[in-house]
Amino acid sequence: MTCRIIIADDHPMFREGMLRTVQRLLPEACVEQAGDLDTVLEMLKTGGEVDTLILDLRFPGLTCISQLGELRQQLRRTTLIVVSMVDDPQLIEQVMAMGADGFIGKNIAPEEIGQALLAIRQGEVLVKFAPSGLLPLDTNTLTARQQDVLRLIAQGKTNKEIAKALDISPFTVRIHVSGLLRSLNVPSRAAAAVKYSASL
């Protein structure tokens, strides 16, 4: 029987890579792609039951982690797999608490992603990612958006205030903060602010 799989990611290259991985592992699957949450929700209304939803965490339309819980309620019989660059254990724990069946880091090898997908679809509750940013990096290696977030952290702004200033969701700010702490190799926002001030 053909199973229906949706790959939901806003990066076409990653979607294409994931599509090839899924087609190689599950040649009988009907694989569809979506670049934002509205498209996913439309797809869920048509075309029959979805066997597996592979969803990026930093995804247009996904503005807070509670939406994962809503998707879980809506898709009780669907395997929900979150695939992301995020490697913050606390955030991943929250993702799993919202009912995700598994979490796969985008920074692991393609064959490992494939093995993890199969294991999760077969009922294994799996979190597989490779912690990155083991070497201390200076602020010049940060993206422009990360530098904006870091500058506002150094000014003592809260996530909510940063979100308002940059016109992004607090959830997205949390993901940027998580990436910042990793990139700067520091344990806290305060330490990141100190490191930022020292670099000026």
Score class of each variant (00 low, 15 high):
L41R: 13
K106R: 15
Q67M: 14
L142H: 15
G114S: 04
E111A: 10
T139W: 13
T39N: 09
G179Y: 01
V177N: 09
P12W: 02
Q67L: 13
I120H: 11
R174V: 03
G69Q: 07
N107W: 03
K160W: 05
G47M: 11
R121P: 09
P27A: 13
D167N: 07
M1G: 06
M85N: 11
T158A: 08
P12D: 02
V194N: 00
G99I: 04
V22I: 15
A100Q: 03
I120E: 03
E42M: 06
R182V: 00
A29Y: 00
A109W: 10
A190S: 07
K106Y: 01
E28Y: 04
T52W: 04
D88P: 00
E32V: 08
E112P: 01
Q74D: 06
M98S: 01
V125M: 05
S199Y: 12
S199W: 08
I5P: 15
T78P: 00
A97D: 14
N185K: 11
E161V: 15
D38H: 08
F129W: 04
A116K: 05
L25A: 03
V186G: 00
I175H: 15
R24L: 13
M96Y: 07
R151D: 09
N159Y: 07
M1W: 02
G105T: 04
R58M: 11
G133H: 06
H176K: 09
I120D: 10
L55C: 07
T46H: 03
T52F: 00
I104N: 12
K157F: 07
L150H: 08
A130Q: 13
H176E: 11
D38Y: 11
M1R: 00
C3M: 11
A109N: 13
V125L: 10
R76V: 15
G123E: 00
G105E: 09
V186H: 04
C64G: 07
E32S: 07
E32H: 10
S197R: 07
R77Y: 15
G47F: 05
Q73P: 08
R189D: 01
R76M: 11
K195V: 14
D36C: 12
F129M: 03
P170H: 07
A191F: 03
K45V: 10
N107Y: 05
S183H: 03
L117G: 10
S84F: 02
L118G: 13
C3E: 06
T78V: 04
T139Y: 06
D36S: 09
Q33V: 05
D148G: 09
Q146W: 05
D101W: 04
G99V: 01
L118E: 15
L68I: 07
K160F: 11
E93P: 03
A34N: 13
Y196C: 08
E111V: 12
E161H: 10
R182Y: 00
L181H: 12
E70V: 06
T2K: 02
P60S: 09
V83Q: 15
A193C: 06
T2C: 07
N185V: 04
Q33M: 12
I81W: 01
G102S: 02
P89C: 03
T63R: 14
V177R: 14
H11T: 05
L62R: 15
A193Y: 13
Q74A: 12
R4H: 09
R145V: 08
E112D: 11
L71R: 00
T78I: 09
I153W: 01
D9V: 06
L126E: 00
Q115Y: 10
Q23Y: 01
I92S: 06
Q73A: 08
D101H: 14
L19R: 13
D56K: 13
V50N: 02
L135C: 04
S188E: 06
Q74S: 09
